[in-house]
């Protein structure tokens, strides 16, 4: 049981997917226009995360290693579809306001990352609690960001009008999401710098590593793919080839223009 509690603590505090690791940024920015939306999105993701972790952990000895990613995706997509239909039937308001972001839970890198990093290697019960912990961590972060944006951008709290000041509407719009996240990031940096000075291990903060290298675009030195290795050199050589192609094209266009 202590292991299950440890997983919960790990997901909510130590490796909080949004506030510490910086994962799943697309839904974080898109749906946090109000606290209710953030909460709804977080809870939906939690259900999918916990159930898919559980099933993947149950099937971990059945799924062959080579096709594990497609298998994970099918399992996750099934649960997402179920949640989508349930929300549509019982909470239509939330379904409307979250819209396209509900089916997009499928590609939330937290879920595939947890399947790959934890559920595929560990027994059922800890995997279930790992999913619940990570999901709750995500929910709490989304609700806090949603509350902040709703308060500054609309001067309200969970839909209640407060009317204390003239709202700064831009915080409810797209740019506000970027600014709030920038603030969050700056706070993380501050903690990271302070922690590094005291000699603490801060490598996890803002690492953005979901252990899901397939969908990762971060720069790191331990990228792993099933059969493709991408190195910095590859990227640079590609860039050179691109530049040459563009130069050639420009020359061609120039010549045509001269004619």
């Amino acid at each position: 049981m202590s292991k299950c509690l440890e997983r919960l603590y790990n997901g909510i505090v130590k490796e909080n997917p949004t506030l510490v690791l910086m994962l799943g940024m697309c839904p974080t920015l898109a749906v946090t226009t109000s606290a209710t939306n953030g909460l709804g999105m977080g809870l939906t993701t939690t259900v999918v995360l916990a159930l898919s972790n559980m099933i993947i952990s149950m099937l971990r000895k059945v799924i062959p290693d080579k096709i594990r990613i497609p298998a994970f995706i099918v399992i996750i997509a099934s649960f997402v579809t179920m949640m989508q239909l349930l929300l549509q039937a019982y909470i239509p308001d939330l379904y409307k306001s979250l819209g396209i972001y509900i089916p997009l839970i499928v590609v939330n890198c937290i879920i595939l990352g947890r399947a790959e990093a934890y559920a595929y290697k560990n027994p059922v019960l800890p995997s279930l609690f790992d999913g619940i912990g990570m999901g709750l961590g995500f929910t709490i972060a989304l609700t806090i960001i949603g509350m902040l944006r709703e308060f500054i951008g609309g001067c309200s709290f969970f839909g209640m009008e407060l009317g204390w000041f003239t709202p700064v509407a831009i915080f409810k719009m797209a740019p506000g999401a970027f600014f709030v996240l920038a603030l969050l990031c700056a706070i993380q940096n501050k903690i990271k710098i302070a922690g590094a000075k005291k000699g603490k291990d801060v490598s996890k903060i803002q690492s953005g590593c979901s252990n899901d290298c397939m969908n990762c675009t971060l720069e790191c030195d331990h990228k792993k793919y099933d059969d493709i290795e991408i190195t910095q050199e590859d990227i640079e050589s590609t860039a050179k080839i691109n530049a040459k192609a563009i130069e050639k094209e420009l020359e061609r266009v120039g010549k045509e223009a001269e004619k």
Partner: peptide, 17 residues
């Protein structure tokens, strides 16, 4: 120091938005 890197990129993205 603490705005270097990602926060600055996000602020830039916000201004672009």
């Amino acid at each position: 120091e603490s705005v270097k890197g990602m926060p600055m990129v996000l602020i830039t993205a916000g201004l672009m938005a």
